[in-house]
Amino acid sequence: MKTTITVIAMALLVQLAHAGKDLNEFKDVQKVKVTTHWGDLEVIGTPALETEDFSLEIRHTDSSNKPSFIESNLDKFVSIRRVGGQLFIEARDPVGFESIDMYLRVPSYIKVELELLRGGNILAENLSQGLEINSLNGSVEARDISGNALITAANGEIKASFKQLDAEKPISLVTMNGGVTVSLPENAQRDVKLRSRKNGYVMSDFELGTRENITNLNQAVYSKSPIRNSATINGGGALLYLSTENGPLAIRKYR
């Protein structure tokens, strides 16, 4: 009994003590691109003054559905290579039904590009140099972003909140199945293009400047006919493009 408890306790301690890989030697890159197949991707921007603010942890779930944090020999699961000012982090091609979840802490001033080729959820938070995401199956959430974002997904909703905007760069959030929600600072100025092919409606905290009739504006009533509208927020500016084949669109004020 005692032995069993000790073994379990040690196993738990090992899980908690997952060290991950220190990537601080790459702190001077301009961009990091992460590619994975199956698994969740979490990328958190860290304030640059913090020590050890660039690191990667991996959780591997094997074909029998057993998850474990990888503490050593991470290069068995991911390749990390630098080409000039870019860092590429790539998960290996899936072996069986495995999934590889990645938890990346990255200095918030580094530009981030994420690619999820099969399935998993993506969370990106507190990044300040803009964001590009290409996802397939799973939800995408970008929180407290500064700058702009270009995001595509296939099956999954997209949520993006911006605490600050780059006034000249576009935001494009495109999915096939799922709703799109964007939160913007109150003073955001945007040219808005809204597309929802079916089962859509538009909710907006902002007054939308347009001569067009927006079906079911601010009513959570699914429209059978496509929604295709152009409008402006606060007089217009850079592009805000929200598009889904199937789902509602929402433009919120950032809080």
């Binding site: 001077d28 301009q30 640059a48 020590t51 001033y109 580094i110």
Partner: peptide, 15 residues
């Protein structure tokens, strides 16, 4: 140098 290298250098100096 790159902008990031400048940023890192200033932050390192401050640290």
């Amino acid at each position: 140098i790159s902008i990031n290298a400048a940023r890192i250098s200033v932050h390192r100096g401050l640290k």
